[in-house]
């Protein structure tokens, strides 16, 4: 079973993932779904890095490591915020919470 594809196919994959992520980010009303969407976008970017690293034999892979680390941290902090958010407001729908707008 050979996974054979050229760079355009991989890019199409990563753009599709990005598009789904953006769609989710803009259309979901739950914070957790939005976090999923953000992770999708990050993974799309990571995929690009990996693809070009594989294609050109450059050191883009290392950025993918960093990105994964940062994304994990971001998920941890984000989910902590979600919990505090829920305790504070009793819901996780960001559109309904407009405290910072004066």
């Amino acid at each position: 079973m050979l996974l054979e594809a050229d760079v355009h196919a991989y890019l199409f994959l990563s753009f599709s993932l990005l598009a789904v992520g953006v769609y989710g980010l803009l259309s979901r009303r739950s914070v957790i779904r939005m976090l999923f969407a953000i992770e999708m976008i990050i993974n799309a970017a990571n995929l690009n890095l990996a693809v070009f690293t594989a294609q050109r034999n450059v050191d883009g892979e290392i950025f993918a490591f960093f990105t994964i680390g940062l994304a994990a941290l971001e998920a941890a902090v984000g989910l902590a915020i979600v919990i505090v958010f829920y305790k504070r407001f009793g819901e996780v729908i960001p559109s309904k919470i407009r405290n910072l707008r004066w």
Binding site: V22, L25, L26, R29, P94, S95, R98, L100, R101
Partner: peptide, 14 residues
């Protein structure tokens, strides 16, 4: 345009 809704801001951002 400053609705206070984060989704709107994200839309503008994208």
């Amino acid at each position: 345009i400053q609705t206070g809704d984060v989704v709107d801001y994200l839309t503008y951002f994208v």
